[in-house]
Amino acid sequence: MTNALTITDVRKTYKNGTEALKGVSFGVRGGEMLALLGANGAGKTTLIGILCGLVTKTGGSAEVFGVDIDAHPEQTRSMIGVVPQEFNFNIFERVGDIVIDAAGYYGIPRSVAAPRTETILKRLGLWDKRDAVGRTLSGGMKRRLLIARALVHEPKLLLLDEPSAGVDVELRRGMWEFVVDLNAHGTTIILTTHYLEEAERLCKRVVILKRGVVVQEGEIAELVRASGAKNLEDFYLRV
C-alpha cells in the first residue's frame, strides 16, 4: 500500500538562522493515525507548515500518497486538510460562510459545498451557530470550526496540530470520537498533542521529534514495553 506520507531528510532553516528541522525522515501508512510528539520548538508545526504549503523547506523531499509536494503542490494540497494550532479564520465572517468559502478554494461549487457543510457542522455541533460570526464563538467552538473547515473538501490526509488545546474534557471527548470515526472511514491522520494519554489511546504509532530531529519512531505499545516504561508519557519523559 502506498504511504500516505513519506518524508525524506526534510530540513528547514529560518532566515534568522534557527534550524527548525535537521533532516527529518519518516513515513505514515495510508489509513493510520500517527502521533507526532515533541516539546514546544521541536519542529512539529514547521513540518506541518511545510506539508501544507505555508513554510518553504530548505532541503529534503516529501510525498503525499506518492505525489511530490514540490512537483505537484496543487495535487498534494487538495489531498491534505489542516487544523492549525491557532485560530486563523476571519472573525467577522459567519461560520457557514467560512466553511463554504473554504470549499470554494478547493474548487468545490457552493451547490455541493452547502449540503456538505450542513452535514459537517451538524456532526460537530455547530449547525445552530452557522449564522453566527466567528468572533462570537467560544474557544471550543472555534476549534471545532477549524476542524469543519479542514474537512469540507474531504481530504485523504488530515493534519491536526494540537486540536484539543484549550478545549474542555467533555468537548475533547466528542472531538476525539469524531476523529476516530474519520480514521475508521479511511482518513489518514497525523496528530500533534501535548495530551500524551490521549495520543496513546488514539494512535498506534508515534514519531517523537526533539530539536528538529526524529529521536523515536515506532509502535507505541512496543516502544513502551521495550523501554520498561509505564506508559507513553513515562516513555516520552525518558527520551
Binding site: 505555508l54 496543487e74 487538495s78 491534505i80 491557532e86 479564520f89 468559502d101 473554504a102 478554494y105
Partner: peptide, 14 residues
Amino acid sequence: FQRSIEEILVSPMK
C-alpha cells in the same frame, strides 16, 4: 493580519 489568508495558501488555488 488575521492569518485567514492561510485558508487560501493551504488550498490548491493557483
